[in-house]
Design a protein around this nucleic acid. Sequence first.
DNA 1: CTGAAAGCGCTTACAG
DNA 2: CTGAAAGCGCTTACAG
Lengths: 332, 332
Amino acid sequence: MREVAALADVSLSTVSRVVNGWSNVDPELAERVHRAVGLLGYQHNFAASALRRTDGKTATIGLLLEDVSNPFSATLHRAVEDAAEERGVRVLAASLDENPERERELVSSLVARRVDGFIIVPAGEDQSYLLVERRAGTPFVFADRPPRHLAADSVVADNRAGAAAAVAQLTGIGHRRIGFLGDLFSIPTAQERFAGYLEALGSAAIAPDDAIILHDLHTAEAAEAAALTLLERPDAPTALFTGQNLVTIGGIRALRQLALEHQVAHVGFDDLVLADIIQPGLSVVAQDSGEIGRLAAECLFRRLDGDKGPHRTLVVPTRFIARGSGEIPPPR
Amino acid sequence: MREVAALADVSLSTVSRVVNGWSNVDPELAERVHRAVGLLGYQHNFAASALRRTDGKTATIGLLLEDVSNPFSATLHRAVEDAAEERGVRVLAASLDENPERERELVSSLVARRVDGFIIVPAGEDQSYLLVERRAGTPFVFADRPPRHLAADSVVADNRAGAAAAVAQLTGIGHRRIGFLGDLFSIPTAQERFAGYLEALGSAAIAPDDAIILHDLHTAEAAEAAALTLLERPDAPTALFTGQNLVTIGGIRALRQLALEHQVAHVGFDDLVLADIIQPGLSVVAQDSGEIGRLAAECLFRRLDGDKGPHRTLVVPTRFIARGSGEIPPPR
DNA sequence: CTGAAAGCGCTTACAG
DNA sequence: CTGAAAGCGCTTACAG
């Protein structure tokens, strides 16, 4: 910038004004500055600018996801990016892999980079450590999962009701032995979906059987193995409810392997590409991860615009999609 | 930092040394500083630090993708993130949506944020504009597609050979009318895959027929519609080669809709989740997007470490996976 | 409308 | 080992 000022023969103040698009600059001086900028290939240093600016904003937000490559996270990411883009804001995304330590490290690393705010799919079981940062003025919005030990804005899917609807569909057509395959039970959504499962069983006066309830399945491989042993039991379930997208894939593979896909009913939580193409079509509880991301971003930007209102929890409804696998009746 | 120095009753220099983990500080003073840091909830300002540091590094790189929510991009993203994570580097990712203007805007926006380097899946057809930035010291590595009008490092898949192998599989079992459905022809990979298609036809002494060659299909919907009209022609192809993951999905849907999935052969470029579960299984040319990301990141970090060697182009091999759809013979 | 000066939060030679 | 001072690239009152 100093060089630009020298070449254009104006003061630093004037260069700053021109570069920031102020209108109160003599057109001729502005022109000289623009020429110098072009000639020198000058690139504004936004970080230095933020350091001195009164608002101090970096026009960058942090987005902490479970895994940027998971379709659920990726869709949420894109929705946040689109909302941020409208305001010229960039997003620093990172994967936590359900690791609470990484959550804290990344928050700290992004706070050091002075992001304006955060959208977090939390991995840890206690977010109270964020209180200090929030007091310092950084807003946090939680997506997909509520924060724990911290009151904050959050946007979540209607996990419990969605799971209950799925399982109610199964009990509705006569199933009474419904296996549950769930993600890591430390994850709030996994707990909620399990609660929905229990709720639907209760409504149908079915006592849950721990033998066909499997938690803590975090990969498609683990889920496939678990489903295989479950389906090979003498008192195997007549229907499966899988509580997460990778778990659902494992369930599909296991059914396929045992050639049971047309005998055993199956409903998954979260939709899958090609779910309508496989046979039978996979019935699912679809959640709108794009909408979750969009609302979370909207909420964050409202906070950044000065909204001081009480914390809010938005619940995004899920939708049951019947495609065949969830409509297979129990053997009579 | 000033407050920390005051509370610990030491100079700013000392606080800086402690915060940066220098060893030449009296343990007692260091202890006082640490206490003050904890008490005040002090958070280091990494941007201000970079401004003054001799290396000036922000420990952040830019990653420009086609679309963070596309599985190909998302997998590449994750591989880059993992490589960056090892070095404590964060990644600022963004979606270009094949828009050359966005490419330039985002580069400029991230240069203003002083990222240390870039990994780019270019959207535009001319990257010569990056010469200025590179002279200023920012390294660029291209992934998935080579840069144009600029010599630079790049990591690409073996698109031409992969496509040729796929089509050769089809000609090998007797197909002579093979439809081509491709992505936007402005994209280098689409051109390469088409070249591979022509090459394989040539090897089988088949003259290409423009009537069954369709370019510029960029969404699953567009591809489905195109495939439908293609398959309903009187001289419809007996096999389909789809040159991109969304295009492949469109092809699958069209075949399904016409109940031709067991009659018309189909090979797709890029693998799909559940491709082995649908019936018939989808034969594909799989490309390793994770490996592309990993190598691109490795290359970028070597440059950041001072590698001044000549620019290199790494080619990642593709792999043909036979699953059934590509092995359907032509009607006799 | 324009410029000189102070200062954002930090690091780094330079003396001591 | 420690501190005072200069300065990274910028913005912003403050005079003129």
